[in-house]
Amino acid sequence: MLRVDGLEVAYGDLQVVWGVSFQVPKDSIVAILGPNGAGKTTTLLALMGLLPVKAGSATFQGDSLVGLPTHQMVERGLVMIPEERAAFASLTVEENLDLGAYTPRARPSRAATLDEVYDTFPRLAERKAQLAGTLSGGERQMLAIGKALMARPELLILDEPSLGLAPIIVERIFEVIRDIRDRGVSVLMVEQHLEMALETADYGYILEMGSIVTEGAGSELEADARVQEAYLSL
């Protein structure tokens, strides 16, 4: 569904992503893992057209993504939840969700998706008139996911969904991510939280210093001694 080949990204003269390749098959959860500063977020931002791609290719359902404006990717069903505060603090919960269905693709099914989202996160329904800025961290992440679902994604990209959340909420978020996959939406996530991500992911890539160093099925990677040594022991 998503195929990235030899992606290189630089901030001016400073190159941070060196020929990264990975793919996300349909109906699966793929995780890109790695320490802070490995180039995970940079890779995602370049993929979404928010940073210039220096070299390499990225195709989504057969079409090249390179050079496409971000909003058109959303229209094609490629939806990313950025790290932290993905919802707009100055808009209410419901305004955020409504804005989530901004693209022509999502507009017709807006009411139905809204019901689904409120079903998944009853908490959001309770707080729909509240400003997003007043929500707790967990609620805000739920709103971010709900808002992304409003766009009717084919592939949902999450940047550090567990960041700054209490363990019990992290569990809930990962449960929702599996649920989203089971509903036919593929998921690509970037995580530092190895254990949780590998348990959830069907396939994982380890990114270090801007290059993929290891890849494998989630359970394999979990068992991989190198991964164990590099991260889980920390």
Partner: peptide
């Protein structure tokens, strides 16, 4: 209006507005 919400979203953070599907330009 929808446009108005897109406007508010853009003024809060244009990157996130673009990721929401708003044509920021």
């Amino acid at each position: 209006t929808r446009f108005g919400r897109a406007l508010r979203a853009t003024s809060e953070d244009w990157t996130r507005a673009a990721l929401t599907g708003v044509n920021v330009r």
